[in-house]
């Protein structure tokens, strides 16, 4: 589904990704962990197409297409979804109108008719219930006045409505209390299938108790330095990131 080869990227003059490789197949859940500043969120931003970053080398194939040939909206229409670390507030645009506009863009892309109002409401209500989202939150402006937890739940709600092929969760767990973490994780788990894949970016092992990964990668200084299964995350929890740093220095 996603193949990243030797990805190098920078912001302004600062090199952040320095030759990153990763292969994600349908049906898999991958976790990327790493200390602050290792480039985790940069990876998410580069994949989603944020313009502040410049790709200097390497390639990314998504479903066989060169990702960097596609504008951010085209990537989304092809089925790539980023759950933002810091969801943006958009005053004046209601959540429901936002989602409807987005969904109809995707349907247009697939050559399908736009949703009728009742069809769309049915979908939205079903997914809102899954995430324990208040009906009232749907008519509110996108993320405006939402608590940190509500914003994260709103991201996963959008994920549930849009049903992308590949979902990237950028530190969705940070700042969540344990109840919200469970709701969000249940939401994600109920969406898992053989046809889609998840890339979970996190600083903490805690989330991976609920969203169990097939693969865990450790990122340090712009590269993946170690890959393994879920045991690697537990190891990291016990020994901290220092063991990676020491290893790196040793190499």
């Amino acid at each position: 589904m996603l193949t990243i080869k030797n990805l190098n990227a920078r912001i302004e003059e600062k090199e952040i990704l320095k030759g990153l490789n990763l292969q994600i197949n349908a049906g898999e859940v991958h976790a990327i962990m790493g200390p602050n500043g290792s480039g985790k969120s940069t990876l998410a931003s580069v994949l989603a197409g944020r313009e502040d970053y410049e790709v200097t080398d390497g390639e990314v194939l998504f479903e066989g297409k060169n990702l960097f040939d596609l504008a951010p909206e085209e990537r989304a229409r092809e089925g790539l979804f980023l759950a933002f670390q810091y969801p943006v507030e958009i005053p004046g645009v209601s959540n429901i109108n936002f989602m409807k506009t987005a969904m109809n863009e995707i349907r247009k892309h697939k050559g399908e008719e736009p949703y009728s109002a009742p069809e769309f409401m049915k979908l939205v209500k079903e997914k809102a219930a899954l995430l324990g989202l208040d009906k009232e939150m749907l008519s509110r402006y996108v993320n405006v006045g939402f608590s940190g937890g509500e914003k994260k739940r709103n991201e996963i709600f959008q994920l549930a409505v849009m049903q992308p092929k590949l979902a990237i969760l950028d530190e969705t767990d940070s700042g969540l209390d344990i109840d919200a973490l469970k709701t969000v994780s249940n939401g994600v788990n109920s969406l898992k299938s053989d046809n889609n894949a998840f890339l979970v970016i996190t600083h903490y092992q805690r989330l991976l108790n609920y969203i169990v990964p097939d693969f865990v990668h450790i990122m340090y200084d712009g590269k993946i330095v170690k890959s393994g299964d879920k045991e690697l995350a537990l190891h990291l929890e016990e020994f901290g990131y220092d063991f990676i740093k020491n290893q790196e220095v040793g190499v």
Binding site: A48, R50, E73, A76, V88, I90, A102, H109, Q158, M162
Partner: peptide, 11 residues
């Protein structure tokens, strides 16, 4: 906000 909307498939 522009990037957020575009990342949700809105042109």
């Amino acid at each position: 906000a522009m990037f957020y909307l575009r990342a949700r498939s809105i042109g």
